[in-house]
């Protein structure tokens, strides 16, 4: 196979070039803008922007994934027949509160990017609450299983487990990300200038939080 890495021949066609860092890149739908500032900063800004675009777009398939479950849930429920409504364990209200708390802690952390101590404390709290939610969910599942509610015992149970476990798995990714950000914070690698990791995690985490509220409402109201 011919070697892909070659030295740059003189382009056969006259080209206009800008030096690196001078390129602004297309800014969202605004089209190609112009560059400014120092090259390193510009690079960091670009990476930040790319990461933010990526995380926002990641929410689309995640939403579609859960909307597929949700609409299947609604359709399957409407078929009636063997459907037995499931009463959600009250513990899930507590879990919901814990998750909301975690989001709040993360927001508080994000307001303290220049205060290393406070930042670290709140990030840790957010992570801990995230773990707390997962633990709470596990307890809730175990309680249900003890009551004879299994994955295949009824379609409503199946949907309950599928939806809550799928959400928990997505949340687990978020917890790992939070843990990573906390670790970064502990090593002093989060600051107003280096906020990509924490911003990306926050978008994902808040979304998971909102998604949970939607799913929780769906499961508890639409029975």
């Amino acid at each position: 196979m011919p070697d892909a890495a070659q030295t740059l021949d003189a382009p056969a066609i006259p080209l206009t070039y800008a030096r690196k860092g001078g390129e602004g890149g297309g800014r969202g739908f605004g089209g190609g803008g112009d560059g400014d500032g120092d090259a390193g900063d510009e690079r960091r800004r670009r990476n930040h922007r790319a990461a933010m675009t990526a995380i926002w777009f990641t929410l689309a398939p995640v939403s579609m994934f859960f909307m597929a479950f949700a609409s299947a849930y609604v359709v399957r429920e409407s078929l009636g027949g063997d459907w037995q409504p499931l009463v959600l364990p009250p513990l899930m209200w507590v879990n919901t509160a814990i998750l909301l708390g975690s989001s709040a802690a993360l927001e508080l952390a994000r307001r303290r990017l220049d205060d290393a101590q406070g930042l670290q404390r709140w990030l840790f709290a957010a992570t801990l609450l995230g773990v707390g939610f997962l633990a709470g969910q596990t307890v809730a599942w175990m309680g249900l299983a003890a009551r004879g509610v299994y994955l295949a015992s009824n379609p409503s149970h199946s949907f309950f487990y599928v939806i809550t476990v799928a959400h928990a798995l997505h949340l687990l990714i978020g917890v790992v990300a939070l843990g990573y950000v906390t670790w970064l914070g502990a090593r002093g690698r989060v600051s107003p200038a280096r906020r990509t990791a924490v911003d990306v995690t926050a978008v994902y985490w808040h979304f998971m939080d909102g998604l949970w509220i939607f799913l929780f409402l769906l499961l508890s109201v639409w029975r």
Partner: peptide, 20 residues
């Protein structure tokens, strides 16, 4: 597909407007 979308939105060189 996430990679494609971000690349197209954020990595266009100078002057590469959407309609170009």
């Amino acid at each position: 597909s996430i990679n494609f979308i971000v690349t197209t939105l954020d990595l266009r060189c100078k002057g590469m407007t959407l309609m170009r």
